[in-house]
Computed example of a mutant assay.
Amino acid sequence: MDEKIKVGIVDDHKILTEGLNSLVEESDFARVVGVAHSAQQCRDRIAFWHPDVLLLDVSLPDLSGIDFCKELTTNYPDLKVLALTSHNEYAVVKQMLINGASGYLVKNAMSAEVLAGIKAVYGGEKFLSHEIDVLLKRQSPKTIWLTDRERELLKLVAEGYTNIEIADKIYLSPETIKGYRKNLLLKLGAKNTAVLVRMAFEQKLI
Rank of each mutant, 00 (worst) to 15 (best):
T147P: 00
S111K: 15
D52S: 08
L153D: 01
C42G: 04
N183T: 10
G65P: 09
F48H: 04
D12S: 10
K137G: 14
I144Q: 01
E152F: 12
L136T: 07
A200F: 01
D2G: 10
Y122W: 13
A47N: 10
Y180C: 07
A120F: 05
L105D: 01
I144S: 05
L154G: 05
I170L: 12
F68Y: 10
F29A: 07
V32I: 09
F127R: 01
K137D: 09
D168G: 03
N21E: 13
D12K: 11
T73G: 06
N21W: 09
L153G: 02
A47W: 01
K204C: 00
T162P: 06
V93R: 00
L153K: 03
G160V: 09
V114D: 02
F29W: 09
C42I: 02
Y76F: 14
I66H: 04
V53D: 03
L84H: 15
A190E: 05
E131K: 15
L54T: 10
K137T: 08
I9M: 07
S38P: 02
N192G: 02
K80H: 08
T17K: 07
G117A: 00
G179P: 03
V92K: 02
V10A: 13
L60W: 09
K191G: 03
G124D: 08
L115W: 13
D168N: 09
N21S: 12
E71V: 04
I170W: 07
T176V: 15
E125S: 12
C69K: 00
I9D: 07
L146G: 00
I9N: 04
L186A: 13
H50M: 13
I144P: 06
V121Y: 06
V195F: 07
D57C: 07
P141H: 12
V157R: 04
Y161L: 14
V33D: 05
E159F: 12
C69Y: 04
N163K: 09
L20W: 04
C69G: 01
N183A: 12
N21H: 14
A36T: 01
E150N: 00
R151M: 07
I98D: 08
L82V: 08
A158V: 03
I46K: 05
S111N: 15
K14E: 14
Q40E: 11
A30H: 05
V35S: 02
G123H: 11
E25W: 04
D28C: 10
E71F: 00
H37I: 04
L135D: 14
A120P: 06
K107W: 08
Y104F: 15
V10C: 15
A158H: 07
W49A: 06
T143S: 11
M199L: 15
K4N: 12
L82P: 02
E131A: 15
C69T: 12
K70P: 02
D44L: 12
A47M: 01
I177M: 08
L56G: 09
L60C: 13
E3S: 13
E159G: 09
L196I: 06
E165Y: 03
Y104G: 02
H50D: 10
L20E: 00
L185Y: 09
R198A: 12
N88L: 04
E150S: 02
R43E: 13
T85W: 01
V32D: 00
